[in-house]
């Protein structure tokens, strides 16, 4: 069950692939046929259901292109 989600800013991504390399759950993939306007390969948030919002992709991103959001449990009440 998804515990969070990430948002990739495709205008500043440079396609280094560190996010896909360091995501231990394999949520992020680089398809190889999608490009930014400047021609860099962009990563895709391919498996949102596996994400647990650990934030490693955003730490390791040298462009600061990833924002990680964690779902707040509404059932606490």
């Amino acid at each position: 069950m998804a515990k969070g989600e990430i948002v990739i800013d495709e205008t500043i991504c440079k396609g280094c692939g560190y996010c896909a390399e360091f995501c231990s759950r394999g949520c992020i993939e680089i398809p190889g046929d999608k490009f930014t306007a400047k021609g860099y390969l962009i990563p895709v948030f391919a498996h949102p259901e596996k994400c647990n919002a650990c934030g490693v992709c955003a730490w390791m991103c040298p462009r600061f292109a990833i924002d990680v959001y964690k779902y707040v449990e509404a059932t606490a009440k």
């Binding site: 069950m1 998804a2 969070g4 989600e5 949102p48 259901e49 919002a53 934030g55 955003a58 730490w59 600061f64 990833i66 924002d67 990680v68 959001y69 964690k70 779902y71 707040v72 509404a74």
Partner: peptide
Amino acid sequence: MNKKAEGPKKEKVVGTPALFV
């Protein structure tokens, strides 16, 4: 799964560091 994705409350965990312009 879709139910949760519709409008879950979310908070930002990691983003651009605060002291960056």
